[in-house]
């Protein structure tokens, strides 16, 4: 026989049911994170398809006249900052898993700062584009790339910021207990979220590199 836990609203759960709900919740964060990557892959693949379709079509020899390129310095800077944000998230999580929450927080804030700067530069880059958006196939897909990259970095910023803000509150909730080792449901949920976020940032690092190579190096 197990107890029924009745909350202040008169509804009830058994401890087993709460554990089931918690497992399902954490599983949802895990599988949701992976599914989100799947969705995002198709979005980015659409851009890549457009790039190669127009490149191979080369209609009116207007794929890329005079081999115009987006502002390379900005491209390098944005890519580097995105990689820094992803790298910090991956490094931070490794430290977090070893119980070093402070390192994770510092890495997280550095990553967030890098992502914010990348976001700013991605917007600013529009001021510096040396071609008209409709001047060629490359020019068009480049504009599309900047929009999708902006969206990607914005998602990274939001996910990092909300996770860091949550970590600050969680410290109070756990009363000083280490979030990595705590069995409190909030801590378990937090760990699952950190894992999914890090996984997504790893994906962003790979996708950003491929996109950077396509638009700035090829």
């Amino acid at each position: 026989m197990t107890d029924i836990i009745k909350d202040s609203h008169g509804m009830s759960d058994t401890p087993e049911e709460r554990e089931f709900e918690l497992r399902a919740h954490i599983g949802s964060i895990w599988s949701g994170g992976r599914l989100f990557i799947g969705m995002y892959t198709f979005l980015i693949a659409s851009l890549a398809f457009s790039y190669f379709y127009l490149r191979s079509s080369n209609n009116g020899l207007l794929w890329r006249p005079d081999h115009v390129t987006g502002p390379t310095a900005y491209g390098w800077a944005i890519w580097s900052l995105t990689m820094l944000a992803a790298g910090m998230a991956i490094f931070g999580r490794r430290r977090f898993r070893k119980g070093n929450s402070a390192d994770w927080m510092i890495a997280g804030w550095v990553g967030l700062s890098a992502a914010l700067l990348a976001l700013f530069l991605q917007v600013w880059e529009w001021q510096k584009i040396p071609f008209y958006p409709g001047s060629s196939g490359y020019a068009s897909t480049f504009i599309g790339y900047t929009i999708i990259n902006l969206l990607t970095i914005a998602i990274v910023v939001y996910w990092l910021e909300t996770t860091l803000a949550r970590a600050l509150r969680l410290r109070k909730e756990l009363g000083g207990e280490n979030a990595e080792y705590s069995m409190h449901p909030s801590a378990q949920s937090f760990r699952a979220n950190v894992a999914s976020m890090t996984y997504f940032l790893g994906f962003v690092a790979i996708a950003s590199t491929l996109m950077f190579a396509m638009f700035y190096l090829l």
């Binding site: 209609n59 009116g60 001047s135 196939g137 068009s140 897909t141």
Partner: peptide, 12 residues
Amino acid sequence: QTAFYVTEHGGS
């Protein structure tokens, strides 16, 4: 004014 779907400007 991009030209993703405008064949005359390098799109398709």
